[in-house]
Design a protein around this nucleic acid. Structure first.
Length: 285
DNA sequence: AGGCTCCTGTTC
DNA sequence: GAACAGGAGCCT
C-alpha cells in the first residue's frame, strides 16, 4: 500500500505524537511480523524516541542513546525500521486500548509529561515487517544496503545513468527499490503518464530529454501527493487515522477504460512487470 | 522477465 | 468462487 508519499505522511504525523517519548514496553503479537535479523523488541524498553524519519518506503524510528550504562552498547538497537508493505498502519491509541485482531506489534510509550499512550503496528495482510537494529544489523540487511537513491534528492545525470544501464521495461525499473527507493505501482503509473512514456519501453532507450522529463514528472507527482497527505485507496491511513486526498488527482491509476484526461481516448489496462498498469496508448510513447 | 508465495478482505 | 489489491522475495 504505502509508497513514498504515504510513508512520508505517516512519519510527519507520527513524529509529534511519539518524539521524546520513553518506550516502556514493546511486544510482538505475530512472530512473522518481526524481521529475522531483528533484535527482540524487549531490547527497546527503557529507550527514548529521538525522531521519526523515512528512507524509501521504510518508516524509521530513531532512538536516543541509552540513558544509563546498563545496556551493553554493542547489543543496543538505535533504530526501529517498519515496512508497511500493503496494509500496514502505525497509529497511536489511548492507554488501555486492547490490540485488534490485526495488531502485530504493541509499543507502550510515556510522554515527557508522564502521560501514557500506545503505538500499534496493525497489518491486515501481515506482509509488513518491523526490525529493531544496531547499525551492524542494518548493514547486514540486503534490502537496506541495496536501497537505491531517494527520488526527490536525485540529480538528472545520476537518474539518466541509472536508466541507461537497465534493459528492462521502464515501469519495472521504477518499481525496483535497488534502482530508486520509494516508488510503487501508483506513482510509477502516474509519473509515466505525466512524462508521456510507455511503461513497456526499455529504460535504456530514453533520450536525455525524455530522461529529464521522467525525473521531473516523478518529483512533481511525489511532491503533489505529499502535499495532499498521500493516496488512500482502501487501507492507507496516516498516524492520526486520517485518509490522504491524492487519489482524487489520479490521471491513470485505477482508471482503466475511463477517458484519458489529456486526449479523451479510453485508457488501457495492461500488465507490466507482473503489475496492473494503466496507460494511454495515444499519449504515452 | 514471468510466475508463485506470503496473507486477508473486498468486489465482481 | 474467482479475481484482485499500495510489496517484495524466491524460483525457474
Amino acid at each position: 500500500m504505502p509508497e513514498l508519499p504515504e510513508v512520508e505522511t505517516v512519519a510527519r504525523t507520527l513524529r509529534p505524537q511519539v518524539q521524546e517519548c520513553l518506550i516502556e514496553g514493546a511486544e510482538v503479537l505475530r512472530s512473522g511480523s518481526l524481521h529475522p535479523l531483528s533484535l527482540p523488541l524487549a531490547t527497546l524498553a527503557g529507550r527514548r524516541i529521538a525522531d521519526v524519519g523515512r528512507r524509501g518506503k521504510l518508516l524509521l524510528v530513531h532512538l536516543a542513546p541509552p540513558e544509563s550504562g546498563r545496556t551493553p552498547e554493542e547489543t543496543a538497537p538505535d533504530l526501529l525500521a517498519v515496512h508497511l508493505r500493503m496494509t500496514g498502519r502505525l497509529m497511536v491509541y489511548a492507554p488501555g486500548t486492547p490490540p485488534g485482531s490485526h495488531t502485530r506489534c504493541v509499543f507502550d510509550l510515556r510522554t515527557p509529561d508522564g502521560d501514557r499512550r500506545r503505538l500499534f503496528f496493525d497489518d491486515t495482510r501481515a506482509f509488513g515487517l518491523v526490525l529493531a537494529a544496531t547499525p551492524e544489523i542494518l548493514q547486514a540487511w540486503d534490502f537496506w544496503r541495496e536501497l537505491g537513491p531517494e527520488p526527490l534528492e536525485i540529480g538528472e545525470r545520476e537518474f539518466a545513468a541509472l536508466l541507461r544501464s537497465r534493459g528492462a521495461a521502464l515501469k519495472a525499473v521504477l518499481l525496483d527499490q535497488k534502482v530508486i527507493a520509494g516508488i510503487g505501482n501508483i506513482y510509477a503509473d502516474e509519473s509515466l503518464f505525466q512524462a508521456g512514456l510507455d511503461p513497456r519501453r526499455k529504460a535504456s532507450s530514453l533520450s536525455p530529454a525524455q530522461s529529464r522529463c521522467l525525473l521531473a514528472a516523478l518529483k512533481d507527482v511525489l511532491r503533489r501527493s505529499i502535499a495532499q497527505c498521500g493516496s488512500s485507496i482502501r487501507d492507507y491511513r496516516d498516524a492520526n487515522g486520517d485518509v490522504g486526498a491524492f487519489q482524487n488527482s489520479f490521471a491513470v491509476y485505477g482508471r482503466g477504460g475511463a477517458a484519458c484526461v489529456r486526449c479523451g481516448r479510453p485508457l488501457q489496462k495492461i500488465r507490466v512487470a507482473g503489475r496492473a498498469t494503466v496507460c494511454c496508448p495515444h499519449c504515452q510513447k
